[in-house]
Amino acid sequence: MLEQTAEVIHTASDGVWVQAVEPSGCGTCGGQGCSSRRIAELFQRKPRNFLVDCDLPLTPGDRVVIGIAHGSVLKSAMRAYGLPLGLMLAGALLAQAIQPGDGAALAGMLIGGVVGWFLARGGRTARPVVLRREDRISFQVMKGQS
């Protein structure tokens, strides 16, 4: 199961809305921020909120660990990208076999792509679930102590 720490934004009847909590860094620079992180922050988009399934009583501001099954990310990517791309290729090849020429191949590709897009949008995606609350106790290891 893939896990990520998130903060509860607000609760809903069918789950909770969360926002992913980004780590402060890899730890190599002591949390000061290296040039790679600063460059990445230039292209960072505004935070997105996600609806996740939850059985726990939570309030806004709670930190939780959310998880999603290993195979569901690959399945979603194949449905969103692989299905339309495969149908575009199949449409182009089929149209080329029926009517040789670039125009027919282009028309078959467009028809296959549109059909693939509609089929990809029709499926249900697996939503992440709240696994547990994040421990409020943080352990800090001070330099020279163990």
Rank of each mutant, 00 (worst) to 15 (best):
M1C: 01
L2S: 00
L2E: 01
E3H: 12
E3A: 08
Q4N: 04
T5D: 00
T5V: 02
T5K: 04
A6Y: 03
V8N: 09
H10M: 02
T11A: 11
A12S: 15
A12K: 09
D14V: 04
G15Q: 04
V16P: 04
V21S: 11
S24P: 13
G25T: 01
G27M: 11
G27I: 05
T28K: 03
C29P: 00
G30Q: 00
G31T: 14
G31S: 08
Q32E: 06
Q32W: 05
G33L: 14
C34K: 02
C34M: 02
R37D: 04
R38Y: 06
I39A: 14
A40K: 07
E41D: 11
E41K: 10
F43Y: 14
Q44M: 10
R45W: 15
P47D: 09
R48C: 12
N49Q: 13
L51P: 06
V52G: 09
D53L: 13
D53N: 14
D55K: 06
L56V: 07
P57D: 00
P57R: 00
L58I: 00
L58Q: 12
L58F: 01
T59C: 08
D62A: 01
R63Y: 10
V65S: 01
V65Q: 11
I66F: 02
G67I: 08
G67D: 05
I68S: 11
A69W: 07
H70Y: 10
H70R: 10
H70W: 01
G71A: 09
A77W: 10
R79Y: 15
A80N: 14
A80F: 07
G82K: 06
L83R: 12
L87D: 11
L87M: 15
L87N: 14
L87P: 09
M88I: 13
L89Y: 15
A90I: 08
G91L: 01
L93Q: 09
L93P: 14
L94V: 15
Q96H: 14
Q96C: 04
Q96T: 01
I98W: 12
Q99F: 14
P100W: 03
P100F: 06
P100M: 08
G101M: 00
G101C: 00
D102S: 09
G103W: 00
G103R: 07
A105K: 07
L106M: 12
L106C: 00
L106Y: 13
A107V: 10
G108Q: 06
G108A: 03
G108R: 11
L110F: 05
I111S: 02
G113L: 08
G113I: 02
V114P: 02
V114L: 12
V114N: 00
V115W: 01
G116F: 06
G116W: 12
W117E: 07
L119C: 12
G123I: 04
R124H: 08
T125D: 12
A126K: 09
P128S: 10
P128N: 03
P128H: 08
V130G: 04
L131F: 15
L131A: 08
R132K: 08
D135C: 07
D135V: 06
I137K: 02
K143F: 08
K143L: 13
G144F: 07
G144R: 07
G144K: 13
Q145P: 10
S146G: 12
S146V: 14
